[in-house]
């Protein structure tokens, strides 16, 4: 297997719980105790109401395909293995995520249900990707 050359997330103190959960194949989101909204990506304060009363919650990993593109030619040499599907998924809990859909491009449709899976791309690094539900 060739070396993984794509950029890897470098967790911050704020985001570390998210990536640690992903490594255990769990999708977790912060939820705001002030306004009740779920938050992605991790923050120090709620971007909606600015409360710092945030807690981590395991969520379903279910959502819908909000939009997607089939990248045939990437802007970065690290993704020279294109094509790949870059997507926005709207989670059932509300927030949208930038992610990849792993499925034949011709099977994709905006609005279709998708579900998260966990791709252990490199030692100690797991990305949250989606596939048709």
């Amino acid at each position: 297997m060739s070396e993984y050359i794509k950029p890897l997330p470098k967790p911050s103190p704020t985001s570390r719980p998210f990536w640690e959960a992903a490594r255990k194949h769990e999708l977790t989101l912060q939820r705001c105790g002030g306004c009740g909204k779920f938050i992605y990506y991790p923050r120090d304060r709620c971007p909606h109401c600015f409360s710092d009363n945030l807690s981590w919650n395991r969520v379903t990993g279910r959502g819908t395909l909000y939009s997607y593109t089939v990248v045939h030619r990437a802007s970065s040499r690290a993704f020279a293995d294109a094509p790949y599907v870059l997507a926005i998924v709207e989670l059932d809990e509300g927030p949208r995520m930038t992610t990849n859909i792993v499925a034949p491009p011709e099977s994709l449709k905006v609005g279709m249900p998708v579900v998260a899976f966990f791709d252990d791309v490199a030692p100690g690094h797991t990305l949250v990707k989606f596939k048709p539900a």
């Binding site: 950029p7 802007s75 992610t99």
Partner: peptide
């Protein structure tokens, strides 16, 4: 935040 939550999925540059 973009290096952490966009780049790993290949959302690099403006095209995507």
């Amino acid at each position: 935040v973009q290096r952490e939550f966009e780049s790993p999925y290949g959302n690099i540059g403006a095209n995507c």
